[in-house]
Design a binder for these strands. Structure first.
Lengths: 189, 189, 189, 189
DNA sequence: TATGAATGAGTGTTCATTCAT
DNA sequence: AATGAATGAACACTCATTCAT
């Protein structure tokens, strides 16, 4: 079935995009990686840009789906936030290459596709913001600007793709706990 | 004086790199922006990559210098952290284009230059970590993993280049207070 | 088959390199000569320099092979020398363009490739020197400095590419006899 | 006086042309070598090509003048030939850089200047040929094709620029004797 | 499905030369 | 005499994409 080949191509592309960047990766590089000729690749992909779009789209989609399912659960806001952080970091670190491509390379997309990714990222932000708002309403959290606070949390979590490789000893679980503690309790004694 | 022209070129390059990305910006684009022929540009720059390096290097240098001067002050760790956040965000937002180029485009640099920037970013991280450690020693902060915590704070602060443009109503000052509150006191009521 | 095209390209390149010189010949010139787009040429060649290298290498290789086969024959040193001169001149004149490129343009090669050609030329010199030494041992020749003498003979023979075109009436055979007579018997009556 | 500067420039150019070749030597290289700005060089030279022409022209002129003065002497043809060889090799080796530029780089000249050099080289050939003819008439030499024989001798002598550097132990005098012996007496015992 | 030849626009960079100061 | 900014054409080479086979 062709979906095997397509998947193989996507995997190779993710690896290459992560290593060299989207623009520095040639179609030839991808073809070499999967043992096809450059021309043959076009039986499986519409274009190099589309390939990147598929990767980025599927990645952000997964983030959104996971978070949505957390929001749907019947647990406290605090628990939702902790779960969100743990899930987000686990997913980021388990698929570090894909996550890197998502956050670092999606900018190379044309206006249209980029807009789609941006909208989905925005949706993700909305969901995080909603958790905070739930916490405020339930009296668990004290937040004056939930959107900016959500952006702070997301920034901290997403930045991980830039440093995790070097600090390899920590697990996603470890980091979640440190992050959760920081965001929930703060630094002050 | 030639430094005027060089500066003009750097400014134009920053703007273009921010808008289109480094790789999508051609030397021709930069030449057009400053009203020179493509070839004439090379009186002022060594290469397109070197131009990017200059921009990124000067940017990270400024971050480091500012933070170093904060560390040198005789104030509490808490005050240092607050000051660090305010200064970092102010600088990021006042020079949003440059900051964007630094964090988004430096990856396009070759191995050598990229390593230089990485080392300097690492130095910045060390300084933030040291603030946290000072706070622990003074009894102000409770931190188990100062490096990871510093990465969280930095991630939150650096992510700003990705969202500030759309949330234009907030000042750097506003955001610093929200961030400081979050990191110092946490979300919990 | 691609080897046809590759050969066609090499032939066109030889002709152009001989006429205008390697550096004055643009890749565009070669492309025009074979009716391809500039970019399409790169399906067949690795680089312009590599193209020159192929030409030069194949030329000097042929010289060496021919001379080696002469040395392997069971004939007198005098006969070997006469045969060497005849063969060398015949090959030079029959492939005057290639020979010209070899002796005139190989200097444009980068250090590595140039070294390879130099080493092979040196090997050729060694073979000629050996003929002279054989002649000395057999008592046929009187030579005090076989290497320098070989260089004299080779210089005379290789210089031909610089003047043959204008003196077109003489055949390689004619010239060989004149050269052989000069080197064997000398000018004196 | 400006002729000093001009001379300095010519000397630097010779050295560079010999090392890197005319085309690979930039005007900047020459300017650097004499401590001037690129633009300032044009107070002393008409063009890069003209600079090459001056060098080549002066070199071939000297060869011709020297040979002419030999022909004017009242000595035997044999002595003239020996003297020609000695003088030619001495000049070649004493000014190896200039000689190299003359024989290797003059081809880079445009049609007009190249023609001038070619005509002067031809004149040199004529003079050598005349020596041989004199020897035939005086009964000293046995030569059937004096022009081709002259070309053989010249080829051997001019080729020297290609190998002398590596065989540095031999003096011009040494080589002249070997060459003279070869051309006058031949190899045969 | 797979090939590989071909495209053609585009890339960063070099360079000899000019000229106002 | 000397500068150095500016030119503008030229250069080798790359690359995503197409398409006939």
């Amino acid at each position: 079935m062709s979906s095997n080949k397509q998947n193989e191509i996507a995997l190779a592309a993710v690896k290459l995009f992560e290593q060299k960047g989207y623009r520095a990766t040639s179609v030839q590089d991808i073809a070499d990686a999967v043992g096809l000729q450059k021309g043959s690749l076009y039986h499986y992909i519409a274009s190099k840009e589309d390939l990147l779009m598929q990767i980025a789209h599927q990645a952000i989609l997964q983030f959104n789906e996971q978070l949505q399912s957390i929001l749907d659960q019947d647990i406290s806001a605090r628990q939702k936030l902790e779960l969100m952080i743990r899930t987000h970091l686990t997913m980021s670190i388990d698929n570090l290459e894909t996550t890197t491509v998502l956050w670092r390379e999606a900018f190379a997309l044309g206006e249209g596709p980029q807009e789609v990714i941006a909208r989905m990222s925005d949706e993700y932000l909305n969901l995080v913001t909603r958790i905070l708002q739930e916490g405020v309403q339930s009296g668990e959290f004290h937040v004056t600007e939930p959107r900016v606070t959500a952006l702070a949390i997301l920034g901290a979590c997403n930045w991980v793709y830039r440093w995790y490789q070097q600090t390899g000893s920590l697990t996603a679980e470890d980091i979640s706990q440190i992050f959760s503690h920081l965001f929930l309790d703060g630094l002050l004694t």
